[in-house]
């Protein structure tokens, strides 16, 4: 889901920057308000984990790969705004240091894997956590966050042929339309990578909650 430089037209990334910068300012304020001595270690560990799990590529038959993202864990524990800013930081480090993603595509990648994923996870959890067992609700939140992030990415790529082409009709940027990108990217995330994201989210949230409960009730003998 990390769109590289050159794939998106200026008609896409300039408005995306205009949208994402004020959102990141707000998210940054919320992150700073969230960060204190109590939350810093857990928030840092979950953000570091997000960076690391994105390096663990999962193969998909057909030769492509994908990975979990880690946004939902942050969104469920620290809220969607703080989570979005933390993911923006991860994406910035990936783009600048490792050439993963890009500078022009940073806003779209942040809108997809940051804001869209974080708010989807938070909304799904809010809608389901009273009705479903915790691990089911957190799994759905993680799965949904990956699927919606994939949908944003697929749309951003898929609208490129219609947005920018030369006189002969040849696309200048990503050449495949929505009819190809949506099934390929959203399908893969609904069936595989989203399931990995859901399992990761449910497992990590359970670990954090169990640890917090153990601390509150004292050491177990």
């Amino acid at each position: 889901m990390h769109i590289p430089d050159g794939y998106l037209s200026p008609q896409t990334y300039l408005p995306a920057y205009a949208l994402v910068l004020p959102l990141l300012v707000r998210a940054g304020r919320r992150l700073r308000a969230t960060l204190d001595d109590e939350t810093l270690p857990t928030l840092s560990a979950l953000t570091g984990l997000a960076f690391v799990v994105q390096m663990i590529n999962i193969p998909l038959p057909g030769g492509t790969t994908g990975h979990a993202v880690g946004t939902a864990t942050l969104a469920l524990l620290f809220g969607p705004w703080a989570a979005s800013c933390a993911m923006g930081l991860v994406l910035l480090i990936q783009a600048l240091l490792f050439g993963d993603g890009g500078i022009t595509t940073f806003p779209v990648n942040t809108l997809a894997m940051g804001f869209a994923a974080a708010f989807t996870a938070a909304l799904l959890d809010r809608a389901t956590h009273h009705r479903l067992p915790t691990h089911v609700a957190t799994f759905i939140a993680g799965w949904g966050s990956a699927v919606v992030a994939a949908a944003v990415t697929a749309c951003a790529l898929g609208i490129q042929p219609a947005l920018a082409h030369d006189a002969g009709g040849q696309p200048l940027f990503f050449p495949l339309g929505l009819a190809v990108t949506v099934p390929a990217i959203v399908g893969a995330h609904a069936l595989l990578f989203g399931v990995a994201e859901g399992a990761y989210t449910a497992a990590v949230i359970a670990l954090v909650r169990r640890t917090a409960t153990a601390e509150a009730t004292g050491p177990t003998p």
Partner: peptide
């Protein structure tokens, strides 16, 4: 074909490209 925008895209030199 390789779309012109992808062929000519500027890439910042990443110090640890592709990890």
């Amino acid at each position: 074909f390789v779309p012109a925008g992808i062929r000519t895209a500027a890439h910042l030199p990443a110090p640890l490209a592709d990890y």
